[in-house]
Computed example of a mutant assay.
Amino acid sequence: MHLRATVAAVSGALALSALALPAAHAADGGPSYRDGVARVLAQHTSGKAAFAATAAPIGDLDVSFSDFKIAKAVKVGTTNKVTTYVTYTLTHAADIDVSDSNVLTGPLIYRGSADYPDNVLGGEAPATCVDKTATTATCKGPVDINPRETDTDLKLFNAQAGTWHGAGLALDFDSEKSAVQFGLGSTLVQRNSQLTVNAAPEPVKKGNTLTVTGKLSRANWEDHKYHGYTGQAVKLQFRKKGSSTYTTLKTLKTDSTGALKTTTKATVDGYYRYSFAGTTTTPAVSAAGDFVDVK
């Protein structure tokens, strides 16, 4: 399930004032994860069991989440949905059976604070859990991120690149109880980057000047194109033919269009590339080396 929440303050709590969900149903005709999460969020929106900015579980289902592990960073481009899997430990009361199809759980990520997140994302399916003891289970579930959402309420915005926080949700259809826990770690949701390089002329006489051009660009989630990433430090690196190690020759910054241009002396055969260390919003990337034959 893919969630998008626009939020407002209600009695100092988290209120989800808009929620759009796909109309998926359980294969056996029973309660679906989509229906359950929608109900839980609507319940909290009403103020009956308000969310708060705390790492403790909120709700009336006797569960808690721990050992929440998510990728350090998730790269999202302009076209394809990206799924990242989260593992966690679910601790629950002895009378809760995680193998019951009426008991569902899954990970969420949210951008901003637990009080006022500006986006919340989850998976299109719940987590799968395996009992380890009578009161603990290990779970694995997806978080889906789609840069091609056309619904305004589901859209991923460029300004939302950066740090997202983890949360866990569990619900029991039979008892109509549920719980949510915030502050379960973090990940970077990043605008995917691309980097090119071209060293010319090729071939070149030893001692002559090479001009090395390139461009650093990153995904724009709003128009689904790649645009230049301006004012970023990028290293020009060289790897001698037969070596596996790149050495930095100089560092320069991208211009107003993300373009790079510099010169260097040709000495021996080898590969030239540009390398970008990355930022919190944009992943590190290195161009494929461009081989230059020195005569």
Results as ranks from 00 to 15, higher is better:
A26T: 14
A26D: 14
A26C: 15
A26H: 12
A27G: 15
D28W: 08
D28G: 07
D28S: 11
D28P: 04
G29W: 13
G29P: 04
G29M: 14
G30E: 02
G30M: 02
P31G: 14
P31I: 15
P31F: 10
P31R: 12
S32E: 13
Y33Q: 07
Y33K: 06
Y33T: 02
Y33A: 07
Y33V: 09
R34G: 15
R34T: 15
D35P: 07
D35T: 08
G36D: 09
G36F: 06
G36E: 01
G36K: 02
V37M: 03
A38E: 09
A38F: 11
R39H: 14
R39V: 06
V40W: 03
V40M: 08
V40S: 05
V40K: 01
L41D: 03
L41M: 14
L41H: 02
A42C: 11
A42Q: 08
A42W: 08
Q43G: 08
H44R: 14
H44M: 15
H44N: 12
T45F: 03
T45P: 00
T45Q: 02
T45D: 04
S46H: 02
S46Y: 01
S46T: 02
S46A: 03
S46W: 01
S46K: 00
S46Q: 06
S46D: 01
G47T: 02
G47I: 02
G47Y: 01
G47K: 05
G47Q: 12
K48H: 14
A49R: 07
A49E: 13
A49Q: 09
A49D: 04
A50P: 03
A50V: 00
A50M: 08
F51E: 09
A52R: 11
A52C: 09
A53F: 09
A53R: 13
A53D: 12
T54K: 05
T54R: 04
T54N: 06
A55H: 10
A55I: 12
A55N: 10
A56R: 05
A56K: 05
P57T: 13
P57F: 13
P57V: 10
I58Q: 12
I58F: 14
I58C: 08
I58N: 05
I58K: 08
G59C: 04
G59S: 06
G59F: 02
G59L: 01
G59I: 00
D60M: 09
D60L: 09
D60V: 04
L61F: 12
L61N: 05
L61H: 06
L61Y: 03
D62V: 04
D62C: 00
D62T: 03
D62S: 05
D62K: 06
D62G: 04
D62E: 08
V63M: 00
V63E: 00
V63L: 01
S64V: 10
S64W: 10
S64A: 08
S64T: 14
F65P: 01
F65W: 09
